[in-house]
C-alpha cells in the first residue's frame, strides 16, 4: 500500500514547514526528507549519482526526526549534496539507519531555491492515525 500524497508545504510567517505522510513511520521519515529537499531545489532535476549512509541515535522519536532532517541539512550545507530518494533501513524510537541517494549541487543544472538553516521542534508533530502524519517547521 502507498499513500497518494507524500508531503505538502506548510506556510509559516517567518519560516516554512512540511507535512509528510506515510503508511508507516519509515515511509513518513523518507517523505519528510523529500519534502525538505523539495524546498531547496526541484527534485526532478536531481540524479542519483551518489549515496550517503546515515546512522543516528537520539533520545526519542521526536529528536530522531529533527536529527534526521538536520543531518541532511548538514550534508547539503557542508558537502553540497542534494538528495532525492531515501531508503529507511532501520527505525525505532531511538535509532535510525538510512541511505540517501542524490548528487552534488551544480548551479548550471539545479535551481537552488530556499536555504534551510535547520529543522526545529517548534510545532513538531508525529501523529499516528491510519498511517503517519509528520509536521516539521524549518528555520529558513
Amino acid at each position: 500500500m502507498t499513500m497518494t500524497k507524500e508531503f505538502e508545504i506548510l506556510d509559516h510567517t517567518a519560516d516554512v514547514g512540511i507535512i509528510a505522510y506515510g503508511v508507516d513511520l519509515k515511509q513518513a521519515f523518507a517523505n519528510a526528507a523529500k519534502g525538505l529537499f523539495s524546498l531547496i531545489t526541484n527534485l526532478g532535476d536531481v540524479d542519483e549519482a551518489l549515496h550517503r549512509d546515515i546512522d543516528l541515535t537520539a533520545a526519542d522519536e521526536e529528536s530522531l526526526l529533527v536529527d534526521w532532517l538536520n543531518e541532511l541539512v548538514y550534508y547539503f550545507d557542508a558537502e553540497g549534496i542534494l538528495f532525492k530518494r531515501f531508503e529507511i533501513i532501520e527505525l525505532n524510537d531511538t535509532h535510525l539507519k538510512a541511505r540517501g541517494y542524490g548528487e552534488k549541487a551544480d548551479n548550471t543544472k539545479h535551481e537552488l531555491k530556499t536555504g534551510v538553516k535547520a529543522a526545529t521542534y517548534h510545532m513538531l508533530k508525529i501523529e499516528k492515525n491510519n498511517g503517519y502524519r509528520l509536521q516539521v517547521i524549518f528555520d529558513i
Binding site: A58, E62, S63, D67, Y74, D77, K117, Y121
Partner: peptide
C-alpha cells in the same frame, strides 16, 4: 551554517539537560 549547526547541536544537548535539571518547559525549542 557555522552558527546554524552550533544552535542545532546545542538545542539537542540542552534538550537532555532539561531532563537532567528537571526543568518544566511548554515547548522543546
Amino acid at each position: 551554517g557555522f552558527g546554524h549547526q552550533i544552535c542545532s547541536d546545542y538545542v539537542e544537548l540542552l534538550g537532555q539537560a532539561v531532563k537532567k535539571y528537571g526543568i518544566n518547559l511548554p515547548d522543546r525549542q
